[in-house]
């Protein structure tokens, strides 16, 4: 797997795509593989405030639950409705159609703390 260069990553296996002051957040291909068949995605409501490093939702397989940590702080603008009816999309297209939430960033400078695609690739390689 090559991780897209236009995304930034966390060691907790989330990715972020920044566009202006908005950011889209998802979990990485590595994360979905570790979880196995995903059956449910629990996401915050639109308008919820999220904080960098704090959990904002969870992703479940049949026998495991994994918290999702926010790569950045902000306010939730949009939640991916697709995942409510088709959680399996997260296994199929984690970096694309199966994004989790879109947020308006309140501290865009936090982006600097995140990993580049190469750094994440190295990290995942080292972890596994």
């Amino acid at each position: 797997m090559t991780y897209p260069d236009n995304l930034r990553y966390t060691k907790e296996h989330e990715w972020t795509l920044v566009e202006g002051d908005a950011a889209t957040i998802g979990i990485t291909d590595h994360a979905q593989k570790e979880l196995g068949d995903i059956v449910f995605v629990d996401l915050p409501k639109v308008g919820a405030k999220i904080e960098q490093g704090k959990t904002f939702g969870s992703v479940e397989s049949v026998k495991a639950v994994s918290d999702v940590y926010s790569p950045i702080s902000g306010e939730v603008l949009e939640v991916n409705e697709l995942l409510a009816s088709a959680p399996e999309k997260l296994n199929e297209d984690p970096h694309g159609a199966a994004w989790l939430i879109k947020v308006r960033m309140t501290a865009p400078e936090q982006i600097k703390n995140l990993l580049s695609a190469q750094e994440y690739q190295d990290y995942v390689g080292a972890e596994s």
Partner: peptide, 13 residues
């Protein structure tokens, strides 16, 4: 089914 709600998986949560 939906056993991720339960103690043997979620433990304190």
């Amino acid at each position: 089914t939906l056993s991720t709600r339960e103690q043997h998986i979620r433990r304190e949560k």
